[in-house]
Amino acid sequence: MISQPLRERMREEEYWTTKLQLEIFRQIDTHLTKNKISRSAFADQLGVSRGYVSQILNGDFDHKLSKLISLLLAVGKVPQVQFADLDKVIEQATGERPRLYATYRAEQTMRFGDEQTAATVNVVNADSGSSIIFDQVA
Rank of each mutant, 00 (worst) to 15 (best):
Q136A: 12
F25H: 13
E12M: 14
E115K: 03
L72V: 06
A102C: 06
F25K: 15
L68W: 03
S38Q: 02
Q92C: 05
D127Q: 06
I69H: 06
S130G: 10
S70E: 04
V123I: 04
T30M: 14
I69S: 03
E8P: 11
P98H: 13
K67H: 14
A102R: 11
N125Y: 14
R99M: 12
G59I: 03
A41M: 05
D44E: 07
I2N: 03
K19Y: 15
F61H: 03
A138Q: 12
Y104I: 15
D62L: 04
Q55N: 09
A93E: 12
G129A: 07
R39C: 09
L73E: 04
S40C: 12
F42G: 00
D87R: 02
L72M: 09
M110C: 04
Q80H: 07
G129M: 09
V124W: 12
Y52I: 10
R105W: 07
Y104P: 06
E8W: 14
D127P: 00
Q27G: 02
L20V: 08
D62C: 05
M1E: 08
N122I: 11
L73W: 09
F83P: 01
S66F: 11
G51H: 00
Q4D: 00
A41V: 08
A93N: 02
F61T: 05
S40W: 12
K36F: 12
E23S: 01
R97K: 14
K36D: 06
N122Q: 15
L20Y: 05
I56V: 15
T30N: 13
L20A: 04
V89G: 01
S131L: 15
G59M: 05
F25P: 01
E91L: 06
F42D: 00
T109E: 13
L73I: 11
R26A: 08
L72R: 03
Q82Y: 04
T30E: 12
S70Q: 09
S54T: 14
Y52C: 07
A93R: 02
T33G: 02
V89F: 03
V75M: 00
F42A: 07
P5H: 04
D62S: 06
I132H: 08
M110H: 07
K88S: 08
E23N: 05
Q92K: 05
K19N: 06
A84E: 15
L6S: 14
